[in-house]
Structure formats: C-alpha cells, structure tokens
C-alpha cells in the first residue's frame, strides 16, 4: 500500500516537474546561473580594484574596504591614463559628430528626393556594410601616410567615420522614407527653402533613428583597438584600449593597480549602459534585427 502511494506520488511529482512549473523552474535556474557567470568577472574586477596586491592573492573573492582608493590615486598621479581617457573622448566625439552629420545628409538625400542614381548610391553605401575593413589595413596605412596623418588622431576619426556611415545611412534612410510628406509639402507651398525644410521640419523628426544609429556606432568606436594599434605610436595620442596595453605592460606585478585600470576603463560604458540599457540593446542589435 505504502509503496503504491509513494509510486503514485513520485509519478505525480514527476509530472509536476515536467509540467509548467518545473519547466519554468529549470529555465529560471539556467538564467540565474548564467547571470552569475556574466556578472562574477565584473564584480571580481571591481572588488579587486580596491584591494592591495597581497589582499587579491589571499582572498580574491572577499569584499574589500571601498574607502581604500590608493590604486586609483596611483593611476591618477603616476600614469598617462587620464590622457588616454581624454583622447578616447575626443576621437569618439569627433567621429560621432561626423557620422551623424554626414549620415543624415546622405540618408536625407536618398530617402527624401527621387533622383537618378539614388538606388545605386544606396547600394554603394550598403556595400561597405559587410566588408571587413581590417583586411584593407595595409592600403589604409599607406593612405594615411600619404595624407601625412599617421600618428595623428585624424586618421582614426576618418576611418571610423567611413566605417560608421554605411550602417547610419542604412538605418536613417529606412526611417526617413517612412516620414509623411504633408508637413514638407505644406512648408514648400509656403516658400520655405529645401535647407530650411530639412533643418527645421524633418530633422527634429529623425532623432529616434539618430539615437539608434549613434549607439550602434559609438560602442565599437569607443572600444576599438586595431586601428590605433596600426596608426598611432605617440603615447600622448593613444586611445583608452590602446593605452591600456601600455599600462598593463608597465604594472605587470601590481595587480591592484591593474584591476583598478581595468575598472576605470570599463566604468564609463558600464554606467551609461545601465542607464540606457534598452537603447543600447536596440542600437547594437539593430543591424541584425529587422
């Protein structure tokens, strides 16, 4: 009797486990485990940034004393770190300004006016979408040398602008095409110039597409390492990811400083991501989600 009951119960349990609750439980466990794996390295990095090197070796997982900021002071006073950070801001900012300005211009022309060759021009931009530009690094290097902008941040700004334009034109043309004609036609009847129509009537409407295109480009540009590696040698001109390699090479044994450097490098983008996660996810996957 008792055996029969347990069997029946076990059977019920098994159905329960296989049922909705159990299945969702399994999925929930997978998600929780994955989130721990995703966050643990970042938490360990931040914790270690506040520890001395011996503390890191003795208790790598321990919670540190967050008032102990000697590692950060060392980075602030003894390294070129702030310079790298500033350079990254300059290069990324200038590239983004150019990408959004030029990208909007091209997309507006293609999306708003019917003219011969507009489809061909769109195809020309789209061709740049999938080409791995890393493989053209030798001619790019020679080109930058001929333009005398090797070891000059203009080389980075120009390459990033060219790389960012295809996606920006693609996203913005699609968006601009969906805008209604009525406003534009009304303004034209009133005698407004084409430039005025674009600037005061249409541009305010394309801001959402600019945000998506902006985020899609700003993350890879901020994080890029390959082009500075080839174009920039002068330490004062290096961007953050490139400067990090110099920095990591200098302090190989001082792990507290190493983790602080990594934490400082990661902090700006992590903080912005936490605030704008929805836009980040939409922007960075926009090329792949249609």
């Amino acid at each position: 009797m008792s055996t029969a009951t347990t069997t029946a119960m076990a059977y019920q349990d098994r159905r329960g486990i296989l049922g909705t609750l159990g299945r969702d439980g399994l999925l929930q466990i997978i998600l929780i485990a994955n989130t721990i794996i995703m966050l643990a390295p970042i938490v360990i990095m931040v914790f270690s940034a506040f520890k001395t090197t011996p503390q890191i070796f003795q208790s790598p997982f321990g919670i540190p004393d967050f008032t102990q900021v000697s590692n950060f002071v060392k980075i602030w006073t003894q390294t070129n770190f702030l310079r790298y950070l500033l350079n990254s801001f300059v290069v990324t900012g200038a590239s983004m300004a150019l990408i959004l300005t030029l990208g909007t211009m091209a997309a507006y022309a293609i999306g708003r006016y019917a003219f011969t060759g507009s489809n061909f021009i769109l195809m020309f931009f789209l061709a740049g979408l999938t080409l791995p530009l890393k493989l053209a690094i030798i001619p790019l290097f020679m080109l930058m040398r001929d333009l005398s902008i090797l070891n000059n941040q203009l080389s980075l700004i120009f390459v990033y602008t060219a790389m960012g334009l295809p996606t920006t034109v693609f996203i913005m043309t699609g968006f601009i095409r969906t805008l209604p004609n009525e406003l534009e036609d009304a303004a034209r009847m009133d005698g407004a110039s084409e430039a005025r129509i674009m600037w005061s009537i249409m541009l305010p409407l394309v801001r959402p597409a600019m945000v998506i295109a902006g985020i899609q480009n700003v993350v890879p540009i901020w994080n890029d390492f390959f082009f500075p590696l080839v174009f920039i040698q002068n330490d004062d001109l290096k961007t953050l990811p490139q400067g990090l390699t110099t920095f990591m090479g200098e302090y190989t044994t001082d792990w507290g400083v190493l983790f602080s450097g990594l934490t400082l490098s990661a902090a700006p983008i992590i903080l912005i991501y936490i605030v704008l996660s929805r836009q980040f996810i939409a922007g960075m996957t926009s090329g792949a989600v249609k």
């Binding site: 150019l98 030029l102 211009m105 022309a109 931009f125």
Partner: peptide, 21 residues
C-alpha cells in the same frame, strides 16, 4: 551638396583601400 561629402568618405577610406589591397 548633401550626397557628395559622405560618398567621398566611403570611397576614400573603404572602397579605395579594399580595391588597393
């Protein structure tokens, strides 16, 4: 005026280097 500057960037820094490669 709208189309030439962006086209020039893509032509000079993407298409030309890839063909040169």
């Amino acid at each position: 005026f709208l189309i030439v500057p962006p086209l020039a960037f893509v032509a000079l820094f993407i298409v030309y280097p890839i063909i040169s490669a």
